[in-house]
Structure formats: C-alpha cells, structure tokens
Amino acid sequence: MILASSDPIAFDTIAPYITAVVVFVVFFAIFAQFIMPTITKGLDDRNNKILGEIAAAEAARTEAKAAQAAFEKRLVEAQDEATKTIAAARADAQRIAGELRTKAEAELADLKRRAHDDMESARKQAVADLEAHAAHLAVSVAGRILGREIKPADQSTLIADSLKELAATRN
C-alpha cells in the first residue's frame, strides 16, 4: 500500500502501522504496570505459601524426630534406672535377709547355749542333790543295818565308795 501510494508517508497510508505501534505500546504499559505485577504477585504468594508450608512441615517433622529421640533416650534412661533400682533393692533385701539370718542364728545359738547351760546346771544340781540324798539315804540304811552309829570317818568312806559305785553304775 505504501509503495502504491503517490505519497509514501501520508498518514492515511501508514495509519494502521502507527495504530499498531501506539496501541501496542499502551497495551504493554498497562500490562507491565498493572496486570503482570498482579499475576506475578499472586503466583509468588502461592509459591511462598507452598514453600512455607513445606518448610513448616519439615521443621515439624524434624522437631517430632528430636522429640521422639529424646523420649526414647528418656525411656532407655528410665529403664536403666529401674534396673538399677531393682538390683539395689534386691541387694538390700539380700543383705537384710543375710543380717536377719545371721542374727537369728546367733540368737538361736545363744538360746541353745543358755538352754544347754541351764540343763547342765540343772543336771549338776540334780546329780548333786541325788548324790547328797543317796548318801544320806545310804548312811541311814547302813546305820539301820549295822545298828550303830557310824562315825564321821566311816561315813566319809562309805560315801566315797557309794559314789564310785554310783558312777560305775551310771557308766
């Protein structure tokens, strides 16, 4: 059209060209100034939101892992502590039981010893009483048999003999 025209730069010839340039420049200005920033901001907001949510989820997961690790550590510590406490209690119980047993055995031995002593003492007393009584009885019997009074020297001899006989009898 330009080449066919007698006036190549006439406005009516290049009007579409000028219109295209002017309208596009206006379109670009509005698009770059208002539309594109709105679209970009919307997209960026969404990206940031998604990235933020992912970061928060990662942080929460890390935190949960740390909490789980701490919990497991505490659990292991508690188990160790419980094991130690049980071992200590068992040791205390054993120790106390040992002490009680020792004490009971000692008391029992003491009781036994005292009973033995008492019995020994009672036996000795009984033997002595028996001896005295036997002697006295023997003397009486002998006096009656002999019909006379036995002198102290005879009496002593008799007692000694009787005791020997008694001892021999006991054995």
Partner: peptide
Amino acid sequence: IVAGFAVAMFVLVKAAKAIQ
C-alpha cells in the same frame, strides 16, 4: 487492533484478578 486491545485487556484483567 483497538477491539483486540479492549478484549485482551478485559480478559487479562479478569484473569489477573482470579490469579491474585
């Protein structure tokens, strides 16, 4: 061109509002 400009503006402004 002018009509295309108006249509493109209308569509893009509407789209930008939906995206924001």
